[in-house]
Design a protein around this nucleic acid. Structure first.
Lengths: 215, 215
DNA sequence: TATACATTCTAGCGGATACTAGAATGATTA
DNA sequence: TAATCATTCTAGTATCCGCTAGAATGTATA
């Protein structure tokens, strides 16, 4: 049994295919977008600020690792994550990165202008308050993403419509805004706007993927 | 705020540093070895069948991503995982790989000569049987690794000593052998030997990292 | 058929990575 | 001081990756 070495190499080689998928920042961004629901190539390209062709080739990598599935709907091809565990792995990787990489911690601190912008993720008390109506949980992502999945008790006002729809929100209660996750800037923008307009608003780091992975 | 793009790029770039660490098969092998306990560079090099210098450079990558720590003990430098969550991520990545990559499933099937060599990981019933003494849980890794951590109720007989110490094992009970995890061949070898010698033996895929990650 | 969406092929560029090897350097122990 | 363990520097090779761009192809809709 001298080929034990070859067998082991083969096994680790296969696992490293998954690692390779998660080793490119643009692919990570695409994965996070796909965590919000199925999307077309064009949408993904626009959101990630890269060309359709480059998006296509990154999606090809994801497809070859069997991490995404495609479905044709008319003229468009929709991509979605092949399994919930792909989203879980994304959450676990970025959580580990946040815990271990000082550089990432510093960059994230810059995003939270005031430290109290961030809600400590005490889920139980947040959900209790939301159930009682003491706080408004606000989903500022595009409405398709809200329709695909959202936090319990959350209301949807996409960031783009927020300025016109401010009157729908109460001024006497705290508003907890969230978006796609800790690297999405929409909730931070929303909180800034709400505060300017005299609302009491805080920013929840977590998105639906982080919430669903349960940590 | 036109630099939103730059900020996002920076954030995903940082997370991709973690992905890059997990994108090399040799680094994965080193991580799995480090899941068994702290080890010197020389030990790691020998176990992974690569040169000390190459091992050193891979470990440097791990260190720069803050995933391992070093400690000098006399002439030797010991490496260990910086956090339990690194082991958890390794388990989650190889589990996802096993679920999604057909090629990996096929390769793993070859390792299990008879399908009933593998114990379905029904932990509760295994532990119940082990507690009652109905089965013997056997750790065939080197004894240092056993001393660092092992499964509940497990006995240690390193694979190298197994042939000489066969008499310590009962023939009237089932023996469940395990080693470093699903890509380690020691437990499979042990089961083969035990069966030849008339023992009733099965192979448990999981190692201590898989067990501790609780899935 | 014309159009929109999406992929593929080709080709090229610059940069990173994996591995090997020789030589020098450091730290520790005996 | 000699020996051991480990890292670093240099250098070289081969390979792969990310990205861009032009051209061709395929697929579905109107």
């Amino acid at each position: 049994m001298k080929d034990a070495r070859k067998i082991k190499d083969l096994l680790y080689e296969q696992v490293s295919r998954i690692g390779k998928v998660f080793s490119s920042s643009k692919r990570l961004e695409l994965i996070e977008l796909l965590c919000q629901g199925e999307k077309t190539v064009e949408t993904l390209a626009n959101e990630a600020s890269i060309s359709v062709k480059l998006t296509s080739s990154h999606l090809r990598e994801l497809r070859m690792a069997h991490l995404v599935e495609t479905e044709r709907q008319g003229k468009n091809i929709f991509y979605r994550l092949a399994d919930k565990s792909v989203a879980d792995l994304w959450v676990q990787i970025h959580t580990l990165a946040e815990n271990r990489l000082i550089e990432l911690q510093l960059a994230l601190q810059k995003l939270a202008m005031q430290p109290d912008d961030l809600v400590p993720s005490d889920r139980d008390s947040l959900m209790k308050a939301a159930r009682k109506g003491e706080v408004v949980v606000l989903d500022v992502r595009p409405s398709e993403e809200y329709l695909n999945a959202h936090l319990p008790f959350a209301r949807s006002i996409p960031l783009e419509e927020l300025r016109q729809r401010l009157s729908e929100l109460p001024k006497d209660r705290s508003i907890v805004a969230y978006c796609r996750g800790p690297y999405c800037l929409m909730a931070a923008d929303a909180v800034e706007l709400l505060k300017q307009e005299g609302y009491s608003a805080v920013h929840l780091r977590e998105g639906v993927a982080e919430w669903a992975s349960g940590r």
